[in-house]
């Protein structure tokens, strides 16, 4: 998921008696499947949790441009380069839809960006891994965007109107990302032995981080119950992760690549693939800021923002001047 470990500020669910009248009416609307809109009354914790979740999601889209940006100038053909640029531009657009959705909850864009730059707000752990070869562009589109799609499709039905509408737009555009990634993998796997080895290496490196995108295991997921009740989380982390494994294993087999986890095995009884234990220590370390690229990603992001300040200010100064001229004319 693009939002991992979103704090609700509430460790246990309130019982019906503990809810105020307004909270009960609010929960009844959610239970009836009625969307909550920006101007509707909402509990403070719902508002704050959504701001955290949507902004974390937005930050992930924005920071997510950086690992791929690394390969734009080294794409193997002009066609691949154009496709990669279009995908990266989509990620910027997705970030902007999501920032707008968060702003409907009463936060300013500048505050959201300040929280990202200060390290107060998080983004998905996945973008703190390096992109070492061209095959990583394939693995990211296929596995990272693939995981994002699994996560975002249910969110199209989430309880907050502006968030759900942003998700619908994002999902419409996202399947291009996954397909172009798999297309890169297919091309490499049909190529030379070295190219196929490159694809295998990218799969091996991105497999576990992609599964970590779904967040902590259900047992360790303290905020899930409240988020589920509010319908801003519709399936558990482990359910969605299982869905990812189940749909991806046959795709790996089609490519003729080795499975990246020796514990992957079809379980007839469960009707799902079994798979190995995730290295949770690594997950929490990356989330805490100690992944391979955390510092570099944030540094690059802040530099881009600071370097663009004069340009944003100049456009504003121009707009102010035009306004003045109109007034005095």
């Amino acid at each position: 998921m693009y939002a991992q470990l979103v704090e609700t500020g509430l460790s246990k669910l309130k019982t019906a008696e503990e809810l105020s009248d307004a909270e009960r009416a609010f929960q009844a609307r959610i239970d009836a499947g009625i969307r909550i809109e920006a101007k509707d009354w909402m509990p403070d914790a719902y508002r704050k949790t959504l701001i955290r979740q949507i902004s974390q999601h937005a930050h992930s889209e924005i920071v997510g441009q950086l690992p791929e940006g690394n390969w734009v100038t080294r794409a193997p053909t002009l066609k691949r380069k154009s496709i990669l640029l279009a995908k990266i531009q989509d990620e910027a657009g997705h970030g902007l839809y999501l920032y707008s959705a968060a702003e409907t909850l009463g936060v300013s864009r500048d505050d959201l960006l300040a929280d990202l730059h200060s390290g107060k707000a998080k983004y998905s752990s996945i973008f703190n891994y390096p992109t070492l070869s061209w095959a990583d562009m394939g693995a990211i589109g296929w596995l990272v965007d693939g995981s994002a799609i699994i996560n975002q499709i249910p969110l199209c039905r989430c309880s907050y109107g502006p968030y759900s509408r942003a998700m619908i737009r994002v999902c419409k555009e996202e399947s291009f990302h996954a397909r172009q990634g798999y297309d890169i993998m297919m091309t490499l796997c049909r190529g030379t032995a070295e190219q196929k080895a490159m694809a295998q290496d990218a799969l091996n490196r991105y497999w576990w981080p992609a599964l970590m995108m779904f967040g902590p295991s259900d047992a360790a997921s303290v905020n899930s119950a409240q988020s589920a009740q509010w319908r801003i989380k519709l399936f558990s982390n482990d359910e969605l992760r299982q869905r990812m494994v189940d749909q991806t294993v046959p795709q790996i087999e089609y490519l003729g690549l080795q499975l990246p986890d020796p514990a992957i095995k079809w379980n007839e009884e469960r009707g799902h693939y079994d798979f190995g234990e995730i290295n949770w220590d690594e997950f929490y370390q990356v989330l805490k800021g100690n992944g391979p690229c955390n510092r570099e990603r944030l540094r690059t992001r802040i530099k881009a923002y600071d370097d663009g300040a004069w340009f944003r200010d100049a456009l504003q100064a121009h707009a102010d001047k035009q306004q003045e001229n109109k007034k005095s004319a």
């Binding site: 902007l96 839809y97 707008s100 702003e103 300013s108 864009r109 500048d110 509408r165 942003a166 737009r169 300040a309 944003r312 200010d313 456009l315 504003q316 121009h318 707009a319 035009q322 306004q323």
Partner: peptide
């Protein structure tokens, strides 16, 4: 710096229907 103001965006689709709200963005003018 001052934050750019927020604008609401409406698009008319190919099929000649009415402009429809699609989202918002920040811009100086």
């Amino acid at each position: 710096s001052k934050e750019w103001p927020l604008w609401e965006v409406f698009i008319r689709s190919q099929h000649g229907l009415a402009h429809k709200h699609v989202g918002s963005l920040h811009a100086p003018d």
